[in-house]
Nucleic acid binder design. Structure first.
Lengths: 358, 358
DNA sequence: TGACCGGTGGAAAGCGCATTCCCACTTGTT
DNA sequence: AACAAGTGGGAATGCGCTTTCCACCGGTCA
């Protein structure tokens, strides 16, 4: 029933297991041609498939990369996952997937599972949470990862570093200029919008969201505009929809002649889509009754109408770089604090129809 | 540098490795409370993390589920992946991800990698290809999987069975009524559309696409309508876009009074979206100048405008069921040919704005 | 011709853990 | 009081593979 083993192959070929191992798997030493051929034939006839578990145990390297995302069905994460997958393939590794619903507790659990599996590297794509209620889980996560890295594991994190995790060998962060890009976006929007600004953000304490909000407010201030009102909701399409519904009600109860339509900045594209859906449902038009902008420029945004203004981020590349960075030689001077070098992630503000003047 | 081992923990606790193993991992025998506590403390203080590789080797079960998809960034696959992930979590397994670009050769490679890792089960979500050029790769894939199953591996496949793989223990197929649903859709569309029908399908030989086309033509015939012209292109958004561009050119060069607008059936939703985008780009409107329908009802379709008619498929559930089915007791009478029992996958035709009469 | 050497295959020691005996000991019987 | 049954812990074996280390063989140089 069980698969055949190296020993069986060796016996059939009339050689020692050592020799069989040398010919079947890449070894520094290559046995003679005649022997090699015999072994190969034996393996073939037995349908031998090397047991990667045993190999991993013997040479203590599993060829596994653990990927932690909030939700694999979210286009933001699936785009990053694609990049990770591609880098993994290039480095001849396989990716182990874990989804966490975004809680640090879930991330800790996933990290522990990856550590147990002795993954060569762990890549964390989800945003950090600085909420007070998550602080205990954050510490546990940091402790788990610190132990993992101390034992020789590699860690790559997208965006902000793990809270409470000190710089250490094998730990790399891939910075994403959320704040800066949000600032640029705000500046661009302020130049063409007279009306008030509203920000629809994720939960307070979600790092990525907070950074974008901060940058946006900063950009507004730089343009001499008052700070935008901030609505907190789920960092998802439905969160955007809920906020959009609220905003629609507000707009409807307002005399039409009272100034310019507002400009709504959503923390990410899926939220922006939710907002547009909600406004549309209430009979409001974008950009007529309200301008809307998002963030990320997820792939399928291009077919959405009205075309959404957003900030383009090379998601696929982010996934690739963070993976490659994590796998890179940990001895290279490159602490987490300074980020993964040679791979600056840059984004682009893209103004489109959804924020065009009415 | 290396992580601490069970033996170290045992020594620190002053017990044998056997005892340490018994308390730290679920065993039938539970050592005394005092001892257990000592061992647990020792493990804690050493930061012991069990080596899943070694455990897997010792008890020959890895807790791994291999998932093969064409493209994880495609919403169809990421929705299924989410279901697989959820089932895996429920069954306390982790999922190993492989993307293949849809070629049987890639699937074979992935299957081999999973077999080497001794995954408890392999789940294949991508569609089969019956193209002549893929036949060699298909045989290799079947051979690989047959060996895998013979060695005790479990296999779950979405949709059509693996070509050339006989029914065998541990191999289950989750049938998806593509043909039947496409027939229903055609019937529904035929009832409201006078104009000609056009089918934009995936590459000839892609099983899922072929089934849908066949069902659609059949439904048309049942309604007394002539067979639709079939355009073959890539089974993706861009494939749809290309076909849409062609169709748009054709529509434009046609006198406006020449009969009813055509009704275009796309093999899946992302293709439909591509088609709509292409038509729109050429200044044509949907459903005014052409009706468009898709298949799958992927999640983010609801925010797309015009709302697309399609066939709803419980993708998340498909992922769950195929995984659970693969993991289920292989001795239960349930050959691949008869599908995974107790889990009939049903879809629903959903007519929406994109196919409403002009 | 004898000492030295690169090269080749085998023996054996793990890698970290689960598990099957096996033994010493504590309880419960008549 | 003697023995059976039951219980808790340890020693040893093996999972399948990699990797020193060793023995050996033909060949080279002095």
């Amino acid at each position: 029933m069980a698969a055949s083993t190296l020993a069986e192959v060796a016996k059939l070929a009339g050689v020692s297991p050592a020799t069989a191992s040398r010919v079947l798997n890449g070894s520094a030493r290559t046995p003679g041609a005649g022997i090699a051929e015999r072994v190969r034939q034996a393996a073939e006839s037995l349908g031998y498939v090397a047991n990667a578990q045993a190999q991993a145990l013997a040479k203590s390297s599993t060829g596994l990369i653990g990927l932690i995302v909030h939700d694999i069905a979210d286009p933001y994460f699936s785009a990053i996952a694609q990049g990770v997958q591609s880098a993994a393939r290039q480095e001849r590794r396989m990716v182990l997937l874990a989804t966490t619903d975004g809680t640090p507790a879930g991330e800790k659990e996933a990290a522990a599972a990856f550590a147990a599996r002795r993954a060569d590297a762990i890549v964390i794509a989800g945003s950090r949470s600085t909420r007070a209620e998550d602080s205990a889980a954050n510490s546990e996560l940091a402790a788990e990862l610190e132990r993992y890295c101390r034992n020789g594991g590699r860690l790559g994190v997208v965006g902000q570093g793990i809270i409470g995790l000190p710089d250490m060998a094998g730990y790399r962060t891939l910075p994403v200029p959320n704040e800066e890009l949000a600032r640029e976006l705000a500046a661009a929007l302020a130049a063409t919008h007279e009306g008030p600004f509203v920000v629809v953000a994720g939960p307070d304490g979600l790092a990525t969201s907070d950074e974008r909000v901060r940058g946006f407010q900063d950009g507004l201030a730089g343009a001499g505009r008052p700070a935008a009102e901030v609505l907190h909701t789920a960092f998802s399409r439905n969160g955007g929809f809920d906020a959009g519904t609220q905003l629609a009600a507000r707009l409807a109860s307002r005399p039409t002649d009272r100034g310019e339509p507002p400009c709504i900045f959503a923390g990410n594209d899926v939220m922006a889509i939710g907002i547009v859906a909600a406004l549309r449902k209430q009979g409001l038009s974008v950009p007529g009754d309200a301008a809307v902008a998002g963030f990320d420029d997820i792939e399928w945004l291009r077919d959405f109408r009205p075309e959404l203004s957003t900030v383009g981020l090379p998601l696929d590349d982010i996934g690739r770089q963070v993976t490659l960075g994590a796998l890179a030689d940990p001895s290279a001077a490159n602490p987490a604090a300074s980020g993964i070098t040679g791979t600056e992630i840059t984004g682009t503000v893209r103004l489109r129809r959804s924020t065009e003047g009415a």
